[in-house]
Design a protein around this nucleic acid. Structure first.
Length: 671
RNA sequence: GCUGGCGUGGCGCAAUUGGUAGCGCACCUGUCUUGUAAACAGGCGGUUGUCGGUUCGAGUCCGACCGUCAGCUCCA
């Protein structure tokens, strides 16, 4: 028989369930308080602070500090510490929101003066003091009126209270990580408001914040943190709102984990394509040209040409016709297409020519439409597939230009497939297969699909019915592919929905690469038609698609993906010949003549450096193969391999060496 | 576009409280060159992003512009 003053709870740990009778006042701290790796509990699916008492029948699971929820709780608690430090230093600072994010947290403040690097150092010290004080986090349920009274000096919090209920926590989980959720839901949920106090040893309130929680039991649970940077951010992400100052930080379960994170960032920075572009002499951005306008050096040119050769050949194999169109056009074309009314801001301003306005093109589709319309079209010609390398220019805002991944002048491997509505699903599937095959050939496997659809804003044209059909077609094909599919509501082009391939770069930013868009609007606006089997005139659907997306961006991502150590087929220089001494240069030249005859990009290093220096240079240039030859090799009609990892293979007969290299190039393998 | 940081020879860096710009690599020249990540010596190269201002004097201070970095917003 159970004692009336006890509860029965179920403890779930590592998939094991354990029934336990405990005292009525038992809390998570009683169960796990000695274990610093437990930061909260999950009771019936809900995250709770450790100091809340259990109820009879509760199913209790400890939340470990290194689990996704545990890390979020740790980081969100660190955000509170940061905010306390800020308000202690800047009495006028008004609180915005302070959610956890990937690898860290931020907190927004309305302050008179932006934070300086010195501020960050001082704030970090202040945070350390708060952590040392082991301030307790105390949860307090308050009514809306109480919250308003208590936070009368916090205008942004008052706004959140007023908006309470509009948040949708179930859509994103408790912390709304990985985007998509309203970060403000960290402060207020849909129901009961809570305030978290930070209590000093004597139980006096050091600081308090409107917050859903949960939090770690006390600030001593934050073993390793750092403030990383600060920047401006618009209140609630809206450019029309006030600009707040955002403080970014990171927090980890241990000093070692923090150190590992910092090391990871340093390693990622070494892969940055902007840095490697200089080091490997691939491309540059001359100031004289203007922001976002790259030039490709000979080595980068090889990369670009290999990609273009590949994708041109593949388009032809997939039934596309290679076409060509100019870089500029009279502006009427872009009125017809609808781009000018909708996206004038994204285009370079017009040039006045003979009294009329000309525009640099920002897209190729209108010109391809003119090719389609250049004569009568039969249903027998469909799908009609046009493809070109289109040079387009987009007036990207100055703050968003970024290396090769966000430029103002770029080359799209752009295609438009004109199809009957019935052919559309098949064509989209065809294009998606084309794209996934291309990504595989370039060694990219870590990507996901995004389905960008319309929302109810007025920037989309066409009927709801047409949008629904187009969206459904794309969704079906994307789902059938089995690739991870992420919704992107409101992200569609004004003329139709799209599927895009998103790839992450070295620093975790994701970039849109390939796109497939379903467009029923432009065929109507351009009056495109074909004659059907029954003699009637019908309007085609056009499917826009770019496989690399932008060649420039793809190169940027490739550089980071391979950290500059490209597979042989893409490497600007595939083989460097290194004579052990000057006199073996002629022998290597003979060998390299054979390589070059086989189409290999191979150079003998005849500089007056010594062998060791030549090896070092080739290594730094990340050349896949170093072929070294001295007396032993020459006598044997052989060469010696040195690979990028420093391993070597000596005395390889020349024919075998050529076969090994040409084989790896042909198979597009990495070495 | 917004907020903040930064801007010194091709690259990476240095220059005390404002006092007339240094180093390494690269490059050029010469001598060297036999086994897997830097031979030795000499030399060329910048008026410090641009323009304007303060000052007897500015790379060092101020302003504008350009570029760049981080974040925000945006991304047909």
């Amino acid at each position: 028989m159970r004692n009336v003053s006890s509860l029965s709870i179920t403890l779930v740990r590592d998939d094991a369930r354990e029934q336990r009778d405990v005292e009525t006042t038992t809390t998570g701290l009683d169960l796990f308080g000695t274990d610093r790796t437990v930061v909260a509990v999950r009771v019936g699916g809900e995250l709770r602070d450790l100091d809340r008492p259990f109820a009879d029948g509760d199913v209790v699971e400890p939340v470990l500090i290194d689990s996704p929820d545990g890390l979020a709780i740790l980081r969100h608690s660190a955000a509170h510490v940061a905010a306390q430090a800020v308000q202690a230093r800047h009495a006028d600072a008004k609180l915005g929101i302070g959610p956890p994010i990937v690898d860290g947290f931020y907190y927004d403040f309305d302050v008179a003066e932006p934070f300086t690097p010195d501020d960050l150092r001082e704030l970090e010290k202040a945070m350390q003091r708060i952590v040392k004080e082991r301030q307790r986090f105390r949860r307090r349920e308050v009514s809306d009126e109480e919250a308003r009274a208590e936070l009368a000096d916090e205008p942004y919090k008052l706004e959140l209270i007023a908006d309470k209920g509009s948040a949708t926590p179930e859509a994103t989980g408790p912390y709304g990580l990985e985007g998509g959720g309203d970060a403000a839901s960290v402060e207020v949920g849909a129901g009961q408001l809570t305030i978290y106090d930070n209590l000093k040893r004597d139980d006096s309130v050091a600081w308090r914040d409107l917050c859903r929680g949960p939090h770690v039991p006390h600030t001593g649970y934050i073993p390793a943190f750092a403030l990383t940077r600060n920047s401006a951010a618009y209140w609630r992400g809206d450019q029309a709102n006030a600009q707040l100052q955002r403080l970014y930080g990171t927090a980890w379960p241990s000093r070692e984990a923090l150190k590992a994170y910092q090391t990871r960032l340093e390693e990622a920075a070494k892969r940055d394509h902007r840095k490697l572009g200089v080091e490997l002499d691939l491309f540059s951005f001359p100031d004289e040209l203007g922001s976002g306008l790259p030039v490709f050096h000979p080595r980068g040119g090889v990369l670009k040409r290999e990609m273009e050769d590949y994708v041109r050949r593949r388009h032809i194999e997939e039934g596309f016709s290679y076409v060509g169109t100019p870089h500029i056009s009279k502006e009427g074309l872009f009125h017809t297409s609808g781009h000018l009314p909708y996206y004038a801001d994204g285009m370079f301003p017009p040039m006045d020519v003979e009294g009329g306005n000309y525009h640099l093109k920002a897209m190729n589709c209108p010109m391809h439409n003119l090719i389609f319309r250049s004569r009568g079209r039969s249903y027998r010609e469909l799908p009609l597939r046009l493809f070109e390398f289109g040079s387009v220019y987009r007036y990207e805002k100055s703050g968003v230009v970024h290396g090769l991944t966000r430029v103002r002048g770029m080359t799209q491997d752009d295609s438009h497939s004109y199809v009957t509505p019935e052919q559309a699903p098949g064509e989209i599937e065809h294009l998606l297969n084309f794209v996934t095959g291309l990504l595989r050939d370039f060694g990219l496997t870590d990507y996901y699909l995004e389905l960008s659809t319309r929302d109810d804003s007025d920037k989309f044209i066409g009927s709801d019915q047409e949008w629904a059909v187009a969206t459904q077609v794309l969704q079906d094909v994307a789902t059938r592919s089995g690739i991870e599919l992420v919704p992107d509501p409101g992200g569609a082009a004004y003329y139709g929905p799209k599927i895009s391939v998103q790839i992450r770069d070295a620093i975790g930013r994701s970039w849109q690469m390939s796109t497939i868009q379903y467009d029923f609007n432009q065929p109507a606006r351009f009056g495109l038609e074909y004659q059907a089997a029954d003699g009637t005139r019908q309007q085609p659907v056009m499917i826009h698609s770019a496989k690399f997306g932008s060649i420039e961006r793809f190169i940027g991502v490739l550089v980071e993906h391979y950290a500059g150590a490209f597979p042989p087929w893409l490497a600007p220089v595939q083989v460097v010949g290194i004579p052990v001494a000057d006199e073996f240069g002629d022998y290597l030249e003979e060998v390299f003549a054979g390589l070059r005859a086989a189409g290999v990009r191979a150079e003998v290093d005849h500089s007056d450096d010594r062998m060791q220096k030549k090896i070092r240079n080739a290594q730094k240039a990340k050349v896949p193969y170093q072929l070294i030859a001295g007396g032993d090799d020459r006598d044997a009609g052989a060469v010696s391999f040195r690979y990028r990892d420093g391993t070597q293979k000596n005395g390889v007969p020349v024919a075998d060496a050529v076969a090994e290299i040409t084989g790896a190039i042909a198979r597009r393998t990495q070495v």
